[in-house]
């Protein structure tokens, strides 16, 4: 009974903040697979705070982002950070691909026999370079422009383009005709 009022407040805050918070967490986390845990911990902490004190006259979005920021810091040990932060997958094949890619690769031009995009998204999410799923989320889900994404993740536009085009080419190679995932 006593928690009902707080639940209304919580729902209202959730409705008003979840899109922005999700975007923030996706951009700032080291692994996109941790998004749900961090979002969950952030809102559970908000719930505990709502039960202890009145949150008035504050910018609730900034407040939540502050909580999320702490959760992200706590979520990753130093060792995990060292293991997961990497600008590029440094193998020769990838570098070669970047050099030979055309700049006008379009996702809709891909001929992918394996019509299971859940598997493809999982493949993208599990990339060692976690900028790839982040960029794909921002580009294909939120439909931000390359310019907007470069500002959000603080990288050059050409880097973003390369990530997209290289990954699309990889999808074509792996999930298209004769691709190793397509043959399974």
């Amino acid at each position: 009974m006593a928690s009902q009022l707080n639940l209304y407040k919580f729902n209202e805050i959730y409705d008003n903040t979840h899109f922005d918070l999700l975007k923030y967490v996706i951009i700032e986390c080291h692994n996109i697979n941790d998004t749900q845990d961090i979002i969950q911990d952030t809102y559970l902490e908000l719930w505990n705070i709502l039960n202890k004190k009145e949150l008035s006259d504050i910018n609730i979005k900034s407040y939540l982002i502050g909580i999320a920021n702490n959760k992200i810091k706590k979520h990753y040990t130093l060792l995990q950070k060292i293991k997961t932060i990497s600008l590029f997958e440094t193998n020769d094949k990838d570098i070669e691909l970047i050099d030979t890619l055309e700049d006008d690769v379009n996702i809709n031009d891909l001929i992918i026999k394996e019509d299971n995009w859940n598997t493809i998204w999982k493949y993208i999410k599990d990339k060692k370079n976690q900028d790839i799923p982040k960029v794909f989320y921002l580009y294909y889900k939120l439909e931000l422009s390359i310019k907007e994404i470069s500002k959000e993740i603080n990288s050059s536009e050409s880097y973003i383009k390369h990530l997209i085009y290289r990954t699309l080419k990889e999808l074509q190679d792996n999930f298209g005709n004769g691709g190793k995932y397509n043959d399974k």
């Binding site: 891909l110 995009w117 998204w121």
Partner: peptide
């Protein structure tokens, strides 16, 4: 389209 399929897969996951 492939773009819509990918978007749907992302929404299904996140």
């Amino acid at each position: 389209t492939n773009k819509e399929k990918l978007k749907r897969a992302i929404e299904h996951d996140i």
